[in-house]
Amino acid sequence: MNIFRLAGDMTHLLSILVLLLKIYATKSCSGVSRKTQELYAIVFLARYLDLFTDFISVYNTFMKIVFIASSLAIVWCIRVHPMVKRSYDKDLDTFRHYLLVAASFLLALFLHEKFTFLEIFWAFSIYLEAVAILPQLVLLQRSGNVDNLTGQYVFFLGAYRGLYILNWIYRYLTEPRFTRWIACVSGVVQTALYADFFYYYFISWKNNSKLKLPA
């Protein structure tokens, strides 16, 4: 474990806490893409299939359980909780996210570390996470003004994988045999998708103005 990865995991956890706070405090999921939440639930379920078979550390197991439980809880809230469900705007959240699932799985069948069930689902989860934010970014562009908590949620979610890139650089420089091309390349693509959001987020922070993404 290094400081970049720990900071990345904590930023990821923070993004989830901010989203939970937004949904709990406002009893609303306006501006939140249910599809992105569903994709993230699939990402964690596919990536942590080895939750009970591979013990790495208490921290690792604990965080995996937190990520799986929180992502499922958020999807449940948006789909089932009567107050929150009413605020979900399905006319804005129209990204065909099943295409992202299909494309990621197809890519994982060709590009993986080993042709085993666990490794194909691991690679699938890496590719899917890289594009999972797309429905959310599209929804933000459509919904015009973005409430602070939702903006902060997306910011921290994008920042965490950026910190992981620093972690991979650090490990590449300090560990002799460290190579994680699938995770690294996907992580760079994932972080790059946030580039314009980060730009408008920085502008809104600098001008102390409302975050607004151009349509």
Binding site: H12, D54, I56, S57, M63
Partner: peptide, 10 residues
């Protein structure tokens, strides 16, 4: 042992 495992990252 942690770094020996392959997928030791979240």
């Amino acid at each position: 042992a942690e770094d020996g495992k392959y997928h030791d990252e979240l």
